[in-house]
Each structure stands twice: as C-alpha cells, then as structure tokens.
Write a protein that binds this DNA or RNA. Structure first.
Ligand SMILES: [Mn+2]
Ligand SMILES: [Mn+2]
Ligand SMILES: [Zn+2]
Ligand SMILES: [Zn+2]
Lengths: 145, 145
DNA sequence: TTCTAAGCTTAGAATCATTATAATTTCATT
DNA sequence: AATGAAATTATAATGATTCTAAGCTTAGAA
C-alpha cells in the first residue's frame, strides 16, 4: 500500500513542522513499515533513496515527530528504541526467540483501578514478552523428530 | 525496617547463587530502598559501606538476580534501567515532573484479550507516565498566587 | 596446613546508542 | 540577488552497559 505523500505533508504542516524531503520520507517509511523499526533500520533503508541522509537527521526527525505525538516511542528493551506510527494505545509483545514485536489490544480503562484517579496520565505503555506461537510451534516440531 | 540478612542469604543459596558480601548487600539495599533505584544510586550508596565496590559488580549482580527472577528490571525510559525487588506484576507510573516512580495495581488477566491465547507470556510490564498529584498540586498553587 | 581450581570481584578498556556541535545547505521572503 | 531562519550533515562527545584480564576468596583435596 502506497503511503499518500500529500496526506503526510499536510499532517506535518498542520502541526507547524516543515515537511522537508527527509521528514516526509521518514514518515512514509513508518507508514509502510509498521514492524516497529529501529533508528538503524530506518536509516539503512532510506539511505538507498537519499544517499546524503545523516543518522542525526533520523534521530532529530523522530524526536520532532514524537514531540508532536505523530509517532509513539517504544522502550520495550532498553538498548533499542523502536518507533510506531500507530499512536492509539495498544500493547506490544516481544518474542524473545525471533525478536518480532506483535501488537495486541488492551482495554486500558478497564484495568486501571481508581488508584490513579488524581494522576494526569499522558502516556500508557503495555509491554509483554515471551515466546510467540510461531516459535512455540517450531520448538514443538524440533522435539518431535 | 531492617532487612533480615539471613533470609537474603537463604534466598540466594536456595537458587544456587553464592551469597557473597556484595550480593547480599545489594539485595539488602533493594529491600530497604523500594524506590526503583538505578545502578548508579545503588553503587553510590553502597560504596560508602564497601569502598572497594566496583560498578561492574553491581551490574553483574543485578543481572544474576534478574536471571534468577529475584529482581524485576524496569525499562520505563530507555536511558536509565531501574530495579525492583517486588517481582509480582504491578504497574509503574513515572512523573515527568519530579521523576518519582509510583506503583499501582493492575488486573492483568482482565485486560489481556484472548488475542494472546497462543503466546507464552513470561513477562508483563505496564508503564504509565504523566504528572503526579503532588506536582499537579504545586502547579495549581503557582497559578493561584 | 598447603595446594588447587572455580567462582567472584575489580579497574579499566571497549562498545554502541544517542545527543551535541558547528559548518553547510535549503528555501521562503524581501 | 540578498537575507536569515530553519534543516541537514559529518563528526565529536557523552554515557550506560558490557567485556577483559588480573587478582582475590574460599571450599575441598592432598
Ligand atoms: Mn504497535
Ligand atoms: Mn515497583
Ligand atoms: Zn517468535
Ligand atoms: Zn511528580
């Protein structure tokens, strides 16, 4: 699915973020690659289209987008920050075997008790980890032979 | 409340972790300081009692304890890992104004939809952030004068 | 007791993700 | 075309964590 450049440009402009070529391409990449990429993945992929691209620009842009709440920052593990264009609250499951990150729905309002009544909550993150069905299946097969 | 050295020694021994002086003191510190300290906080505090203590030992010990599931690792923000002696599942709220981290209860089973039925979940983290009541109160007072 | 080996601790070097800096480029406005 | 603010770039700096190699502890064997 092609990301509509125009809608990205508009979305950035609406928030007073200059829609530079680099910024638009980074947004486009995030829309087209919703696998929660790292800075390095974004940088390496885009470098082929924009040979002059600097990693600092990728960092700067992602910080600008996060500030504007156009991307969500995932600190699921503390050595690799990942980015998600989907900003609505949802949970993330990281498979410790294959490293893949899965989305899942969480009923946030349900599980927060009144305990946080007097807190102003601006961000909600739910991170699970373990083994995904695919990797569980592989392990099962291994055992059986 | 004094942490019972004996019970710490036993708990370590039960898991085949040699209860060295450094390890016991680090455990004891975590029991007595349940404010989710960073490696640096633990190191700086204990250095006064154990002048030869090395930061590498603090890292090594925390990794050993985490491996044995005696401490929980918090990656609430990706530049500072924190440690929690309470391993039962509970949520963490970080106030972006004062930096304090609050615990709160979460009804885990309630909010996990059947979506993850086929996943083996080994770790569950719930991280919220925003402004705590104390800081909200201060801001309110500021405005009023 | 002395010897030995395994496991722990230590200091400092190495790594690696992220941020800071300063020069250059882009681009809208005059 | 000239101006100037903002964005981009390359590179240096920072800082948390891990690695490495040497020294220390300790329990069991001789
Ligand atoms: Mn997601
Ligand atoms: Mn806690
Ligand atoms: Zn997997
Ligand atoms: Zn606060």
């Amino acid at each position: 699915m092609m990301a509509a450049i125009d809608s990205i440009v508009n979305e950035l402009a609406r928030r007073n973020i200059t829609p530079s070529h680099q910024r638009v391409m980074i947004m486009k990449y995030l829309v087209e690659n919703q696998c929660h990429p790292t800075v390095d993945q974004i940088f390496s992929a885009l470098r082929q289209q924009i040979p002059t691209l600097s990693k600092a620009t990728v960092y700067n842009t992602l910080n600008v987008l996060a500030e504007a709440q156009l991307v969500r920052v995932l600190s699921i593990e503390d050595n690799e920050t990942r980015y998600d264009i989907t900003t609505e609250t949802h949970g993330h499951f990281k498979c410790s075997s294959c490293g893949r990150i899965y989305n899942f729905a969480v009923d946030v309002d349900r599980f927060v008790s009144g305990e946080l009544r007097d807190f102003r909550i601006t961000e909600k993150n739910v991170y699970f980890s373990g083994i995904c069905p695919t990797c569980l299946g592989k392990a099962e097969k291994e055992k059986r032979r």
